[in-house]
């Protein structure tokens, strides 16, 4: 098989890195060679965060260039739009419709763009909107938004070989294991 690329984007603190770790572990358990790349440092401080997971028989380069992502998973809708040029022609985009103001927006210097979801759907063929933040809040904690999205992605990618619930349980803090498992199933439903 050719190498597949998944780009996960969000805002620092949303749990994109944990999500990609679980995703990578699942892909390894499905027998793939996997590489994962993350940029952290300043991005921990509320900036844009991007992590990249590539898998296949043999993966060379760890990072994903423009127009190369088979899947984009976005934790925040304006980040989905920012990342859109990375989507491969015909690739699939899974995004939360959650919005988080960046500092220029919050302080009134810039405006949060209106009509993002419509724009995404107008431009790309495969756009799936998952209200993961709302689902997570409904389950009791907005922080499990990332695991809801993981569930949605696993379903969209038809990755059903791995024991995903076991992997989720292994990577999240024991105290919130059950909540995360519920979040995963809600996303996969």
């Amino acid at each position: 098989m050719t190498t597949k690329s998944i780009l996960l984007v969000g805002v620092g603190g949303q749990g994109a890195i944990l999500t990609s770790k679980i995703l990578a572990a699942g892909l390894i358990s499905e027998g793939f060679d996997v590489k994962m790349s993350e940029i952290h440092g300043m991005s921990q401080r509320g900036g844009t965060v991007a992590t990249q997971v590539k898998y296949g028989e043999k993966v060379f380069a760890p990072n994903i260039g423009l127009g190369e992502a088979d899947f984009i998973v976005s934790f925040e809708k304006s980040e989905a739009l920012r990342a859109l040029p990375y989507l491969k022609s015909g690739g699939a985009l899974v995004t939360d419709d959650h919005e988080i103001y960046s500092m220029p927006v919050a302080s009134g210097v810039a405006e949060y763009p209106a009509g993002i979801i419509e724009e995404l759907k107008r431009l790309a063929e495969n756009v799936l909107v998952v209200p993961a933040g709302r689902i997570a809040s409904g389950l009791g904690n907005v922080k499990v938004q990332n695991i809801v999205l993981l569930g949605a992605l696993v379903k969209a990618m038809k990755l059903d070989q791995a024991d995903w619930p076991a992997l989720v349980a292994r990577y999240v803090p024991p105290k919130v294991k059950d909540l995360n498992l519920k979040a995963f199933e809600a996303g996969r439903a």
Partner: peptide, 19 residues
């Protein structure tokens, strides 16, 4: 290379900030 999806909507930058 591939044709890229591009939007005319401007996404404001998201610089890192003090927590």
């Amino acid at each position: 290379g591939p044709v890229l999806y591009k939007s005319d909507l401007v996404v404001p930058p998201r610089p890192p900030v003090l927590c």
